[in-house]
Computed example of a mutant assay.
Amino acid sequence: MNCIAMIPARYAASRFPGKLMQDLAGKTVILRTYEATVKTQLFSEVYVVTDSEIIFNEITSNGGKCIMSKEEHESGSDRIAEAVANVPCDVVVNVQGDEPFTEKASLAKLLLVFEDDHDHNIDLASLMVEITDEDEIINPNTVKVIVNEDNFALYFSRSPIPYPRAKDDNTRYFKHKGVYAFRKQAILDFAVLPMKMLEATEKIECIRYLEYNRRIKMVETTVQGVEIDTPEDLEKARRLWK
């Protein structure tokens, strides 16, 4: 099975513009993420996919591989769909550019879904991690997911789901880590499906699959990491890196 990784990278992020070019222990966030993904040794190729010459030059000048987007895109998966069309692979993993703590164990569990799926019943898999901090549960920057008994996603939201109307010590909350693994044809299909109301409202791209009756296999990991959405997240990442 030929697996590649692609890292979509926009310079003009809405919540924290230029965050991928911020310094993290002597290197930019995007370069840290690229190097961490390469270091896993799980992929035949790793590419950054961007609309920014600044990011393109940052990756290529440090010996990395980068693809410039030809069109404007609403989501990272749309950006990857354009880039992967002419790249030979069976599975493409979408690693978020703002996750410099990307590590091997979680990605290996994600790829195992496809290695065990001999009948090709699963087109898309993603990661989730249990969260217990109340501030994180209610934080709209943290995307939550609920699943069925077979760990297929039922819904994703920026709101707390399930809503804690009855306080119950058995209630569990899971954060969706923005790492997706697609069969190549699945991500090509994704790009031609028009965005619908729920995705547009929540601004969560994987909801598009659910709205079109596609299934997403969720894989639980215990690795939290740090997703850099705000300047406060960057400071947290800097402390953690030390």
Rank of each mutant, 00 (worst) to 15 (best):
E220M: 08
A191T: 03
Q41D: 13
L193V: 05
D78H: 11
P164T: 00
Y47F: 15
T201Y: 12
I67P: 01
K39D: 15
L188H: 03
D133P: 02
K177W: 09
D119L: 11
Y155E: 15
A9Y: 02
N62F: 07
I67L: 12
I4L: 09
M6W: 00
P162F: 06
M6D: 00
Y180K: 15
I228T: 01
K109R: 15
I7C: 00
G76E: 03
E211H: 04
E74D: 15
I54W: 01
R215S: 14
I131E: 01
I7D: 01
G225C: 06
T50P: 04
V113L: 11
V95P: 09
R238P: 10
I216E: 10
L124H: 03
I204D: 08
S157E: 06
F182V: 07
D78M: 07
G76R: 03
L24I: 06
D168A: 09
L31H: 06
K144C: 11
V147D: 07
K104F: 03
H118K: 15
T142P: 07
K217Y: 01
Y180L: 15
A108S: 14
A191F: 01
P140F: 04
Q96K: 11
M6Q: 02
F174M: 05
K236Q: 15
I67S: 05
S44C: 09
Y212M: 11
K70N: 11
K177C: 12
D168V: 04
I138H: 10
L31D: 07
S126P: 02
E130S: 01
D90V: 00
V143G: 10
V93P: 03
T60Y: 05
R214Y: 09
E220Y: 02
V38S: 06
A191V: 02
M195I: 12
T142Q: 13
F156C: 00
G18M: 05
K184Q: 13
M1T: 09
Y209M: 14
L198A: 13
M128Y: 07
G18R: 07
